[in-house]
Amino acid sequence: MPLLHVDDVVVQFGGVTAVNHAQFEVEEGTITGLIGPNGAGKTTCFNVITGLQTPTSGKVLLDGRDITRMPVHRRSRRGIGRTFQRLEAFGSLTVADNVRTALDIHDGFSGIFRSANADIEHLLDRVGIAGYAQERADSVPTGVARLLELARALACDPRLLLLDEPSSGLDESETEAFGDLLKELASEGRTVLMVEHDMDLVMAVCDAIHVLDFGSIIAQGTPAEIRANKLVQKAYLGYADEADAADETKVMSL
């Protein structure tokens, strides 16, 4: 059984369909990429999975259990963690306190008498931003804030980690280190689903890739398969001529 199953999800905003019968699965312990052009509905999918957006129709299943109507915080307790494309770090707190807060929330009352300093240090070190521990989260570079969100999500020990454009704002060597970290997380048995625009990163670390276009999955497969897929190239680059576009629209309406 897949860990996550997004089943025929539709999200409409007024007359606009952001997610259009999206259907995909994420296997436990893998790194799965969710890619597609801007406005394809990737972040909306994430919001549906984490409970920030109620789908117009369709279901989300975690471990075979329907969680479509479950409130956000209870999904988190069931092991879903995420980062945000538009940053949601706690800007008034220091980087270390961001993680400390996540630990406080996760541990509840049982954590009161435990010093979390070692854990925080470990988590920040793990994502590679220990040097920023005492800076306010709204004054660090974007890349650092993204990694902070990852550290914060990890503090809750998630089984399924949703990362929304985690590498934007990172330079080349940082991206490489980040790729290694993702593989490490997967080897611990965590499942990663990520929206990412850096194709080099996606191709290098993902076990499987789903391509979302106009709110629907237009292709699924291994990185090599996706790279060779003509539909995917078209989705990203557009269409060379009208006949091409007409063909494509026909295919999609089937």
Binding site: L52, R75, G81, F90, T101, H106, R152
Partner: peptide, 24 residues
Amino acid sequence: GPLGRILIATRDSQAACGTLGLDI
């Protein structure tokens, strides 16, 4: 203390608090 941090966290980002497991 932890309560104060959580209060400030809920002010800064309710969505993030929710996804960390807090019932705001």
